[in-house]
Amino acid sequence: MQASSDPSSADWLVHAERDWWDLAVRGPLGYASYARLRFIPDPTHPGQREGEADAPYDDRSETEQLAVVVATLAKHTTTPEDCYFCVWEGWGGLEVHGAARIALPEREAFLFRGPALDLPQWEQALDPPGPEGLPIPSFVWPADRSWCIGNDVDPHFATIGASSSAIEDVLADRGVDTVADDPDRPQPGYSY
């Protein structure tokens, strides 16, 4: 996993015909199926705050949970060794050298590239290493674009777009909390 200096690999996201919020939260349209990786369970009543979630938090970091999904999706791409990872530049104190700045609307990001299965080491991808490491990626996709994960900083979930068989495999993995998603319907959200 290393910084990537070529911003053209993210042009398809930068120029996606989608409202910036929907792109950041739900990723690009055009996939056969969608799912959500829930870092915490969905709210059960209006006005609920994240700290009032009805189930305990997963002990693993969000990046570790995302890595489980990416490992499943790696079986559904012809380019598992060539994937892209964006990190939102708005995280405080983030110093990235050598990475292209991706001009995503309202969510500019830095671009990294590496094998899908290197995501568990994502936090150490800075060169030189930073004291905090990298926060969770905001987008992940393989070079063949057979799937894409959108993960905005605000919601309690990441959205996965992929083939129907890839989404079936993601939903079948009981190691993470995933549910089917419909990009035409609003998602549940916590109050802030």
Score class of each variant (00 low, 15 high):
Ser33Glu: 13
Asp42Leu: 03
Val68Ala: 14
Tyr31Trp: 12
Thr72Met: 02
Arg60Ile: 00
Tyr34Ala: 12
Thr44Val: 15
Ala32Val: 07
Ala32Met: 08
Thr63Pro: 07
Arg36Gln: 12
Tyr31Ala: 12
Gly27Ile: 06
Leu73Glu: 09
Arg49Cys: 09
Gly30Asp: 01
Ala32Ser: 14
Gly51His: 05
Gly51Gln: 10
Pro28Cys: 07
Thr63Ala: 13
Tyr57Asn: 06
Phe39Ala: 00
Gly30His: 13
Gln65Val: 00
Ala67Thr: 07
Tyr31Ser: 14
Phe39Cys: 01
Ala67Asn: 03
Leu29Tyr: 08
Val69Gly: 03
Pro46Trp: 00
Tyr34His: 14
Tyr31Val: 09
Pro41Val: 14
Arg38Pro: 00
Asp42Ala: 15
Pro46Arg: 11
Arg36Glu: 09
Val69His: 03
Thr44Ala: 10
Ser61Met: 01
Asp54Phe: 07
Leu66Asp: 10
His45Asp: 04
Phe39Thr: 03
Gly27Ser: 06
Gly47Asp: 11
Gly27Lys: 02
Leu66Gly: 04
Arg38Val: 02
Ala74Glu: 09
Pro28Ala: 15
Leu29Gly: 14
Pro43Gln: 07
Ala35Lys: 09
Ala35Cys: 11
Thr44Cys: 05
Gln65Ala: 02
Val68His: 11
Gly47Ser: 05
Leu73His: 04
Leu73Asn: 07
Leu66Glu: 07
Glu50Lys: 13
Tyr34Thr: 08
Ala35Gly: 10
Ser33Arg: 15
Arg60Tyr: 00
Glu62Gly: 04
Gln65Asp: 02
Arg60Ser: 03
Val69Ser: 02
Ser61Leu: 00
Asp54Pro: 01
Ser61Gln: 00
Val69Pro: 01
Pro28Trp: 10
Val69Glu: 01
Ala71Gly: 15
Pro56Thr: 14
Leu29Phe: 07
Arg49Met: 12
Pro46Met: 06
Ala74Tyr: 06
Ala32Trp: 05
Ala53His: 05
Leu37Phe: 00
His45Ser: 09
Ala67Asp: 01
Glu52Thr: 02
Val70Trp: 05
Val68Pro: 08
Ala71Tyr: 00
Val70Gly: 02
Ala32Leu: 11
Gly30Gln: 08
Leu29Arg: 15
Gly30Leu: 14
Tyr57Ile: 09
Leu73Met: 08
Gly51Tyr: 04
Pro56Val: 12
Ala74Phe: 02
Pro41Asn: 04
Ala74Pro: 10
Glu64Tyr: 05
Pro43Leu: 02
Pro41Thr: 13
Arg38Met: 12
Gln48Gly: 06
Pro43Val: 03
Gly30Arg: 11
Glu62Trp: 08
Leu73Cys: 06
Arg60Asn: 08
Gly47Thr: 07
His45Gly: 03
Leu73Thr: 10
Asp54Leu: 11
Thr44Met: 11
Pro43Gly: 08
Gly51Ile: 10
Gln65Met: 10
Leu66Ile: 01
Asp42Met: 05
Ala32Arg: 15
Tyr31Glu: 04
Ala55Lys: 13
Pro41Glu: 11
Gly51Arg: 09
Ala74Asn: 07
Glu64His: 04
Ser33Lys: 12
Gln65Thr: 00
Ala67Arg: 03
Thr72Leu: 04
Tyr57Ser: 13
Phe39Val: 01
Val69Tyr: 00
Ala35Arg: 05
Asp58Met: 09
Gly30Val: 11
Ser33Cys: 14
Gly51Ser: 09
Glu64Met: 08
Gly27His: 06
Gln65Glu: 04
Thr72Arg: 14
Gly27Glu: 08
Asp59Gly: 15
Gly27Arg: 04
Glu52Phe: 03
Ala71Asn: 13
Arg38Glu: 13
Val69Asn: 01
Thr44Pro: 04
